[in-house]
Design a protein around this nucleic acid. Structure first.
Length: 418
RNA sequence: GUGGAUGUAGCUCAGUUGGCAGAGCACCUGGUUGUGGCCCAGGGGGUCGUGGGUUCAAGCCCCAUCAUUCACCCCA
């Protein structure tokens, strides 16, 4: 019989992995809370239309990467490929703007799904930590979100990262830039632009800027830059954001070719990347999406958000050690099994952390196990102890050892001691 | 969707011109009548991804297939 295996691009996160993921989530929670963010959890399954409308029909995500299927009544549903659409849907549906706040800041984390070929740092099911801030168009919010992201990453101990920033303009000024780009690419011969870009220059000329083909990069170097086309409002917005980052001591690089893959971004876009995790370098990315909430049927509110890829952060973080435990209870005589379990229960009721042996073994083998668990104390319960009503307590760190009456254990093993 | 690489013990991997299936780590036991880590000795574990083919003989050569992985693409 063939063994059942996990499906392609879906990973089991084992205990060693989960410690790292829990650490990321805990750090995010702690840092984001300082900024007034609150947690929200939304379904991972939504109507297909939600993603098609928000992410953009022309994007690769919608065209070929979504897990879409019909439910039992024929409704088209999709496993979320990103979090923003679902969070904003909830924001609208639950009237979260009715609180009278300047901006509603929400974070969430969980699995996302994209049907792509897996490779290093790219899974079909992957995990993101996501933040959305809705209700404010002020550039100060852009700066705050970027600073919050970098504080989070620094708190995780990650420093060898690059922050890149760009402005994509707004519906007012971007068309002029797109026209200029199209003009620029119009005369380009097939030998110079790659196949994809020949198509892109008509459908979404901004994407050509992001192409990694050597020929295209060469060409793009001479292409018009968005900053020359920004309207006065976008320019002022961008200047304020950059100035605030400067004054906050935040390093960054301007990247006029930074174009994000989702259609809804306007003005500020940003990306954090690493060279140390393979070909997929982006660890976090986001931008402003004024207009998106309205286009999803909500009030006309501006917003900005970002996502962090947890798999990619995990590649940078490395393994996290298992925590030591307080005790391990070794049983050397069958009559000790019941008392051991009850004793362990008492210790745990008092806040201690540890395990009890479930079968009788040699002292040596018990101590080896205690050592492996990194137990601070190994309690021994054998024939001698049972007959005298004592327990032998061995301190695993300094190897000292004492015999004490069963009922006095808590006097020795107090939580304060740890 | 396209291209490359790799599938041998729980893990990481050796395996020569085709000739009895190996190491390190991990695990278990012992070295101490009831004392861990270090050290020493011993031990358990493998349909060599799967199915065909060539051969006296295949882990090794050929074909197919599945899986994994890296990259393109795209993105977190």
């Amino acid at each position: 019989m063939a063994q059942l295996r996990r499906i392609k691009g879906f990973a089991d996160l084992l205990p060693d992995d989960c410690r790292v993921y829990a650490h990321m989530e805990q750090t995010a929670r702690e840092v984001f809370t300082r900024y007034g963010c609150q947690e929200i959890r939304v379904p991972i399954l939504e109507k297909t239309e939600l993603f098609a409308r928000s992410i953009g029909d022309e994007t690769d995500i919608v065209q070929k990467e979504m897990y879409t299927f019909a439910d039992r009544k024929g409704k088209s549903l999709t496993l979320r490929p990103e979090a923003t659409a679902g969070v904003l849907r909830a924001f609208i549906e639950e009237n979260l703007d009715a609180q009278g706040d300047d901006a509603v800041k929400l974070y969430t984390c969980g699995p996302m799904f994209r049907y792509e070929r897996p490779q290093k740092g790219r899974m079909r099911q992957f995990h993101q930590i996501n933040v959305e801030a809705v209700g404010q168009a002020a550039p100060q919010l852009d700066a705050e979100m970027i600073l919050m992201l970098t504080m989070f990453l620094r708190q995780l101990g990650l420093t060898a990262l690059t922050l890149e920033i760009n402005s994509l303009g707004c519906p007012g000024c971007r068309p002029a830039y797109q026209d200029a780009l199209q003009d620029f690419f119009k005369g380009m011969h097939k030998e110079r632009l790659c196949e994809d870009c020949l198509r892109r220059k008509l459908t979404n000329p901004l994407r050509v800027l992001d192409c990694k083909a050597p020929g295209c990069r060469e060409l793009v170097a001479g292409a018009p830059v968005i900053s020359d086309f920004l309207c006065p409002e976008c320019r002022a917005h961008n200047d304020t954001v950059l100035s605030l980052l400067d004054r906050a001591g935040q390093d960054y690089m301007l990247n006029a070719r930074l174009v994000r893959g989702l259609d809804y971004y306007v003005r500020t876009t940003f990306e954090v990347s690493s060279r140390d995790i393979g070909a997929q370098t982006a660890v976090a990315g986001g931008g402003r999406y004024d207009g998106l909430v309205k286009s999803l049927g909500g009030p006309d509110l501006p917003g900005i958000g970002f996502a962090c890829g947890m798999e990619r952060l995990a590649l940078l973080l490395g393994a996290k050690q298992a925590k030591p435990v307080d005790f391990y209870l070794a049983v050397l005589d069958p009559r000790g099994l019941d008392p051991a379990l009850l004793l362990a229960q008492t210790l745990r009721r008092n806040g201690l952390c540890g395990e009890t042996a479930l079968e009788v073994k040699s002292v040596k083998s018990h101590l080896r196990r205690a050592n492996k668990l990194k137990a601070r104390y190994c309690l021994l319960l054998g024939e001698r102890e049972i007959e005298t009503g004592n327990v032998e307590i061995k301190n695993m760190l300094d190897t000292t050892q004492q015999t004490i009456p069963f009922e006095n254990i808590l006097a020795v093993l107090t939580p304060e001691e740890f």
